[in-house]
């Protein structure tokens, strides 16, 4: 028991530490990477790691280290975008559907139907409509998480609106909009934060999958998913093209998962089922 607890805290700490490191790397990317990630140098293509290129070069002679560093930016932006999109809209729709019963039937029916579409396929269709682009990809993946967030928020709202303090607020004449904004939403912040952390982790995998299928972030943008997708042909010839971005994705997703775990234990032990049950 003691040993396990200790280990768990240490591992979780490592997760937070890695996220912090990633943030620093993302912000300081221009200082860390000596060579801009887009610089093409066909003469130096497919150089192994070490020497002039810490992580080697790809088939355009671009510096893999720079691309990994800038990829941190792309990944964090992508993940944050998906979280922001799905959480803001999800909370709004979920709370409205849960609080204003007249909208409930329609909104929840729509959400249920959207949930019936396989997430990755839905994202693929949406990207095909919108075209490849950072914002478009965020929206496409965001929509698939949106529905899940709506579901969670809706359930929470239903529960919260039965609480005595809400009834008191309504009785004292607070306008419905203010009730939702001041009382309902603040009372479910912790589960929302926990949900957001996991969304962040899994959306990174979805973004990488879209990149792999050639329908993700535009290939000119250095992203780990694109690097893996372009590098997969070089599995035997230049494994460093896969090792560095691959490890980056695994470590990042892992860190967010660990962080989410700890946050959940701290903030809301009851939520466990709702988040993971989907």
């Amino acid at each position: 028991m003691r040993f396990g607890f200790f280990l768990r805290r240490k591992v979780a700490l490592a997760g937070f530490f890695f996220i912090a490191l990633l943030l620093v790397v993302a912000v300081a990317a221009p200082f860390l990477a000596r060579i801009p990630p887009q610089t093409l140098n066909p003469v130096d293509k497919l150089q192994p790691p070490g020497g002039a290129y810490l992580f080697g070069t790809d088939n355009f002679g671009r510096d893999v280290f720079s691309r990994v560093v800038y990829g941190a930016r792309t990944s964090l932006t992508g993940g944050a975008g998906v979280v922001l999109f799905s959480t803001v809209l999800g909370v709004l729709i979920g709370a409205v559907a849960g609080y204003f019963r007249r909208t409930e039937a329609w909104l929840m029916r729509l959400v249920d139907v959207m949930m019936a579409f396989p997430p990755l396929l839905l994202a693929l269709v949406l990207v095909s409509i919108l075209g490849r682009g950072m914002v478009n990809v965020i929206v496409a993946v965001g929509v698939t998480y949106l529905t899940r967030t709506v579901r969670v928020v809706y359930a929470l709202t239903l529960r919260i609106r039965e609480e005595p303090y809400i009834e008191a607020a309504i009785a004292s004449g607070v306008r419905p909009f203010d009730v939702v904004a001041r009382h309902v939403i603040p009372n479910m912040l912790s589960p929302i934060i926990v949900q957001a952390t996991f969304t962040f982790a899994f959306s990174l995998l979805d973004l990488a999958a879209l990149d792999f299928l050639g329908l993700g972030i535009p290939p000119a943008v250095p992203s780990w998913g694109n690097m893996l997708s372009e590098g997969r042909m070089y599995l035997t010839r230049a494994p460093w093209l896969l090792i560095f971005p691959g490890a980056s994705i695994v470590m990042t997703v892992l860190s967010f998962n660990l962080a989410g775990d700890v946050l959940r234990d701290r903030l809301d032990p009851q939520l466990r089922r709702k988040v993971e049950g989907v």
């Binding site: 982790a201 995998l205 990488a208 999958a209 792999f212 998913g225 893996l228 997969r232 896969l242 691959g246 994705i249 695994v250 470590m251 997703v253 892992l254 998962n257 660990l258 775990d261």
Partner: peptide, 11 residues
């Protein structure tokens, strides 16, 4: 299990 949940499937 956390580790396996964090690996991109194609990789």
């Amino acid at each position: 299990s956390m580790f396996f949940a964090s690996i991109p499937t194609f990789w």
